[in-house]
């Protein structure tokens, strides 16, 4: 259960680490470094209870819902926070209680390794197999993998926990456009601990949380841009007075509002509906909209800035690069539109 007060409190609590007005200095300094985020900040985030937001209270979490988590990740998006909360939270709720304490304290980072090919939402394609305490296969696009201590690997029928340093575990990280990294995990008969469970629901929540993060991204860069239109002058006038830019801005605002309405409604559906197909269809609609809108808005904001928008020193570019990484993550707009079509075929509405 989450009420409006809880959501407001969560947003306010985010302001310490993810202030809406930050100058993004910390974010810039962490770009293109390894692991691309700050473990001290990670511990603070864990102390705030963020990692455990979705973990049941009897396991040391706060047992809140998807709406609460999305309220938080929207704030993280607005501040471009690189710490891998969405991924780590996906893993945390799948770990058994006895493995949780040091994870929840922020001392140990476990990230999910679920994906086996691009543009896919399949958790276990059969490309990674567990047998006799060993796991073999390959997982791709593990976000911020350079900072993980262990990986929770999805395999047919369950989960397998592998330590990053174990024999047969090979991690290769690629730098991402936002200055973070993405891991390819190759497992060759690696020692693994079997964990009962199914990551499907956790994946849905990660899709939702990423949609909300993208909402924060587009909302903040849009705000920055509206400020710019009110200050920059050309032809002796504020550029915001040109009708061409006013119309462009209005169009971007429509996208932000659509994304906000869709993400909020979908998050509510997650907390309130027991109908799995309905819930998934809502997730897909939210992620499709958030990915598309984030792309439209970040691109539009670069254009509205003119030349300075194409510099690395100006902030809009940071938001565009984040979009480039997160719009395709956890299913691109096209992937989610296709899934929506399958879940909600035309003619099935009534």
């Amino acid at each position: 259960m989450t009420n409006a007060d809880d959501l407001r409190m969560i947003r306010e609590s985010a302001a310490g680490i993810a202030p809406r007005t930050s100058d993004l200095k910390r974010i810039r300094a962490l770009r293109f470094t390894e692991p691309g985020f700050d473990r001290t900040v990670w511990r603070e985030m864990c102390e705030m209870g963020w990692l455990g937001l979705l973990v049941p209270e009897d396991q040391g979490g706060s047992g809140l819902g998807v709406q609460a988590f999305c309220a938080l990740t929207e704030e993280l998006g607005a501040a471009l926070i690189p710490e891998p909360l969405i991924a780590a939270a996906m893993a945390a709720r799948l770990l058994p209680s006895d493995m949780l304490p040091d994870v929840m304290a922020g001392d140990r980072i476990v990230l999910p390794a679920w994906q086996e090919k691009p543009l896919s939402l399949d958790l276990a394609d059969g490309g990674t197999m567990f047998a006799g305490g060993r796991v073999t296969g390959k997982k791709v696009f593990v976000p911020m993998a350079a900072g993980a201590d262990a990986f929770l690997v999805t395999v047919p029928g369950g989960l397998a926990l592998v330590e990053r340093g174990a024999a047969g575990v090979h991690l290769e990280c690629q730098t991402t456009q936002d200055g973070g990294n993405s891991g390819t995990l190759t497992l060759d008969n690696a020692h693994a601990v079997w964990i009962d469970g199914d990551a499907s629901a956790a994946l849905e929540t990660a899709c939702m949380a990423t949609s909300a993060y993208l909402l924060g991204v587009m909302d903040r860069v849009f705000g920055i841009t509206m400020e710019y239109l009110k200050t920059r002058e050309q032809f002796g006038r504020k550029i915001g007075s040109f009708q061409a830019l006013q119309h462009r801005s209005a169009d971007l605002k429509i996208q932000v509002s659509l994304a906000r309405a869709t993400v909020n409604a979908a998050a509510k559906t997650q907390d309130e509906s027991g109908d799995s197909a309905l819930r998934k269809a809502a997730v897909s609609r939210a992620k499709a909209r958030a990915s598309d809108a984030a792309s439209i808005v970040t691109r539009g904001c670069i254009q509205l800035h003119g030349g300075i928008g194409y510099t690395d020193a100006a902030d809009p570019g940071l938001f565009l690069r984040k979009m480039m990484v997160l719009a395709p993550a956890y299913g691109s707009a096209a992937v989610h539109r296709a899934r929506f079509r399958d879940l909600a075929p035309v003619g099935d509405e009534d």
């Binding site: 691009p118 543009l119 791709v140 696009f141 690629q174 730098t175 991402t176 456009q177 936002d178 993405s182 792309s295 480039m324 990484v325 997160l326 719009a327 395709p328 993550a329 691109s332 707009a333 096209a334 992937v335």
Partner: peptide, 15 residues
């Protein structure tokens, strides 16, 4: 933009 659609996650990589 179509390139990013086609590339999926690869479109977020630096290299």
């Amino acid at each position: 933009e179509t390139m990013l659609d086609v590339a999926g996650e690869h479109g977020g990589m630096l290299e």
